[in-house]
């Protein structure tokens, strides 16, 4: 479904920084992949390239056979919004908007008609177990609850792939456990998930773990 071939992302910041270097990776429909590796090894960069937030400097990236280099800005934005759902370590919920309004945000720029958004947002909140808090101010929620809202926001747009960059990085282990369990059950329902994590326990719960080191994708472990 997703195929990276020899993908590199090079920054020139005085010296040449190889955030990604010659990465080959194929992701199949329904996979649950953990990306591990030390800080600065290029995990976030890999996720951003996959999610069309970032451009590789060289190499080929195909989504369902389509080379993304051929896409114009409009198609990239549309694909980013509809194919991928993002979950970040810092949640990025908008203060001053209710939980359900935050969830609806993922559908604002897509094809979902305005009238259907509320319904789909509530469905997604139901899925993460937070429907009761739909009118709350996200600032009043705990870290784990916020991350669930962020996951609901990603789910509401019904993406093909969920990209999570250290989703449990700000959470204690018990709360993190709950999030990982939730991701596991979403994957069991057929959602393709790629999660960047430092937590070795997560590795035991996923189908495949890839290791990043200095921009290179080194080891791949299947379970």
């Amino acid at each position: 479904m997703l195929a990276l071939e020899g993908v590199s992302k090079v920054y020139r910041d005085g010296v040449e920084i190889r955030a990604l270097w010659n990465v080959d990776l194929t992701v199949e429909e329904g996979e649950f992949i953990a990306v591990m590796g030390p800080s600065g090894s290029g995990k976030s960069t890999l996720l951003n390239v996959i999610g069309l937030l970032d451009h590789p400097t060289s190499g080929a990236y195909r989504i369902r056979g389509v080379d993304v280099a051929d896409l114009d800005d409009r198609s990239r934005s549309a694909a980013r919004g509809q194919l991928f759902g993002f979950v970040f370590q810092a949640y990025h919920l908008l203060a001053g908007r209710s939980v359900v309004e935050n969830v609806e945000l993922s559908m604002v720029y897509g094809p979902v008609p305005t009238r259907a958004r509320r319904h789909r947002a509530l469905d997604a909140l139901e899925r993460v177990g937070l429907a009761a808090r739909r009118h709350s101010d996200p600032r009043k929620l705990s870290g784990g609850e916020r991350q669930r809202v962020a996951i609901a926001r990603a789910l509401a747009a019904r993406p093909a792939v969920l990209l999570c960059d250290e989703p449990t990085g700000n959470l204690d282990s018990a709360t993190a456990e709950g999030i990982i369990t939730l991701l596991g059950s979403l994957n069991a329902d057929g959602l393709t998930i790629i999660v960047v994590t430092h937590d070795p326990d997560v590795a035991g719960r996923v189908g495949r773990t890839v290791e990043m080191r200095d921009g290179r994708l080194t080891v791949t472990t299947r379970r």
Partner: peptide, 16 residues
């Protein structure tokens, strides 16, 4: 800034 990034992530184009 994070809000702008998030909006881009959920499909907003610069003109939006």
């Amino acid at each position: 800034t994070p809000e702008m990034g998030l909006r881009r992530a959920v499909g907003a184009r610069p003109r939006h």
